[in-house]
């Protein structure tokens, strides 16, 4: 959009506002990063100065004496498996709904859409009882099932929109070429919605990676804790060592921030996918 160049004051105000907001976002993150390299004495004595050196002692402490690496690994396992399971089962269901005409097709889509409106958090009590009886409490598999199930409605919704838009003649052509239904799906149709798979994957991976609530309820033993939940333990143990705490936060934030910076366009598209028609 063009705007008039002569509106000098307006432009100045705009940039002040934007740059101010940028500082408000980046400075705290920068301080978190810097404080992780400092000793407690430095943090208390010279809180705003840069660290004397890129001192990695805090990180060594975390790596050798805490469970944070374990938490990171658990979070990675849970997120990767959940998203993989989610994309496979979600694509299958979305494909059935959007590429075939069958009796009850509308009922089936309604069934999946209904899931969009159910906040699973509020069903945590029955879920807990049920998971307990299934032996899935204090078990990463339990988290994986929950995350997959609660992310399915949005995934089916996003993917069926894209699948429906693929031309029917492609499918017909593959059918005449002799490809089985499975092969048509896997080899011809699904590769064409890769962008949608990325969007649906990010849309769900970020909240799963960041989730705190379900591990809080379902995970008890330290070696099964995920990152967000494990941080509370870590903060309890190191409550007076600010340097280590800042380093822990930085370490916890690092994986997703790195991926975000590399793939920011996709992340933004993915995470706002549900809110933009």
């Amino acid at each position: 959009m063009e705007h008039r160049r002569n509106a000098g004051l307006e432009t100045w105000l705009m940039y002040i506002f934007l740059i101010g907001s940028t500082i408000a976002v980046l400075y705290p993150i920068f301080m978190m990063l810097m404080s992780g390299f400092k000793t407690n004495a430095e943090i208390f004595g010279a809180p705003f100065s840069l660290p004397k050196s890129l001192n990695l002692d805090n990180y060594k402490t975390i790596w050798t004496t805490t469970d944070v690496p374990r938490y990171l690994l658990n979070s990675a396992i849970v997120t990767i498996i959940s998203v993989a399971l989610l994309l496979v089962t979600g694509t299958m269901a979305a494909y059935a709904i959007s590429r075939y005409k069958f009796r009850g097709a509308i009922m089936v889509s309604m069934f999946f859409l209904a899931g969009l409106m159910l906040p699973l958090r509020l069903a945590i009590i029955p879920l807990f009882v049920q998971m307990k009886s299934m032996g899935l409490v204090d078990n990463l598999l339990g988290l994986i099932f929950i995350y997959t199930a609660m992310s399915l409605p949005s995934t089916v919704f996003i993917l069926s929109g894209f699948l429906r838009a693929l031309p029917g003649e492609l499918e017909d052509s593959a059918r005449v070429d002799g490809a089985s239904e499975l092969r048509i799906m896997v080899e011809i149709m699904v590769p064409l919605i890769t962008p949608a798979l990325v969007i649906a994957g990010i849309y769900n991976a970020v909240p799963i990676w960041n989730d705190f609530f379900f591990p809080l309820i379902f995970i008890q033993t330290p070696e099964n804790r995920t990152l967000a939940q494990g941080l509370t333990t870590f903060f309890g143990e190191y409550s007076v060592n600010f340097g280590v705490l800042y380093a822990g936060l930085t370490l916890a934030a690092l994986p997703i921030v790195v991926v975000f910076i590399i793939q920011s366009r996709r992340f933004i598209a993915g995470m706002t996918a549900g809110a933009i028609k």
């Binding site: 031309p167 003649e169 492609l170 017909d172 052509s173 059918r175 005449v176 070429d177 002799g178 490809a179």
Partner: peptide
């Protein structure tokens, strides 16, 4: 099934 009929088809959109 289409493939077992011994036909080949050229589509309007080329597909």
């Amino acid at each position: 099934a289409p493939a077992r009929r011994g036909v080949a088809m050229v589509f309007q959109s080329y597909a």
